[in-house]
């Protein structure tokens, strides 16, 4: 299980990385944390001729909050995000989600940008981006593009990222005082891919839900926002009846994809249960 031979280039800056992408085109691949890419290369299912290592680029590893917008550099490792007080305060959803990602040693190396660019349908972070209404910032020699998360993730391992673009950062609104972040997933073993997982951002006013972004992962071809379920919550308080209804709507609107062990019906059932349990937890926390 040894990869193809490749050319290795360590990029010292974002601009250098972008220039290298331009130079090597489709034969090049970005190496960030490598926690998905390296095993895929070992299996010879990914065979880039050139690896552009961006893991040393300090400017991609910053976390900043300004004007109510949290910006996380794509090169930040999971562990950096998890341990960031700034993230804990302004986007607690991410701190709830990251402990579910694989195990410690993987979280010490894997990066936010790497996970988003890969767009594994079972990955936790794309769903978080949907729920947080985040913007994915990509950059090429032509400058930056800011892509709403909802447009960025387009299918299994498929995103809006062009060949010559580097994912450089994500931006998301700081959590408001009337917002609740909730993350949860159901898996067979700790650290496994989920059977169904959810990342919810709820906004409440006067005891009623004013906005609800219910995002799911590991259930479809990519992370998915249950918009009808979200709309059904708006204007309601979290009664057990509305929770049941919304759980049914979520389970009804998602196009479920089977995985190796769980068929579509299983995904649907667990999504319904997951939604109910998450909303119930939120309700319990509010009171």
């Amino acid at each position: 299980m040894k990869p193809h031979l490749f050319q290795y280039i360590r990029a010292e800056s974002t601009q250098a990385a972008i220039a290298l992408l331009e130079e090597f085109g489709e034969d090049a691949q970005i190496l960030a944390g490598g926690q998905s890419l390296v095993p895929t290369m070992a299996l010879r299912m990914a065979n880039p001729e050139t690896l552009i290592d961006i893991s040393a680029i300090a400017e991609l590893q910053t976390i900043e909050l300004s004007d109510g917008v949290l910006t996380i550099g794509a090169g930040c490792r999971y562990v950096d995000v998890l341990n960031s007080d700034l993230v804990a305060k302004s986007a607690p959803l991410l701190c709830q989600a990251i402990p579910y990602i694989a195990h410690d040693a993987i979280r010490n190396r894997g990066t936010i940008g790497g996970s988003l660019a890969l767009a594994d349908p079972a990955s936790e972070l794309p769903a978080c981006m949907l729920a947080l209404d985040a913007v994915i910032i990509v950059e090429s020699k032509d400058g930056q593009r800011k892509i709403p998360a909802g447009d960025f993730f387009q299918g299994t391992y498929f995103t809006d990222l062009a060949e010559n673009e580097l994912l450089v950062a994500i931006e998301m609104p700081e959590i408001a005082s009337n917002q609740i972040h909730k993350f949860y997933e159901i898996s067979r073993r700790s650290g496994d891919y989920a059977i169904s997982g959810g990342a919810f951002v709820l906004t409440h006013e006067d005891g009623c839900i004013a906005d609800a972004r219910l995002a799911y992962f590991a259930v479809s071809d990519c992370a998915v926002l249950a918009t009808k379920a979200g709309e059904a919550l708006v204007g309601n308080s979290l009664s057990s009846e509305i929770i049941e209804t919304v759980s049914d709507i979520a389970a009804g609107e998602i196009e479920f994809f089977a995985d190796l062990y769980n068929g579509e019906a299983m995904k649907k059932q667990l999504t319904k249960v997951l939604t109910r349990r998450m909303l119930t937890k939120i309700h319990d926390g509010m009171n």
């Binding site: 290795y8 360590r10 390296v38 993987i106």
Partner: peptide
């Protein structure tokens, strides 16, 4: 702590 199988030595 990291997995040494998921890092290239050259890094």
């Amino acid at each position: 702590t990291v997995r040494s199988c998921l890092i290239f030595a050259i890094q």
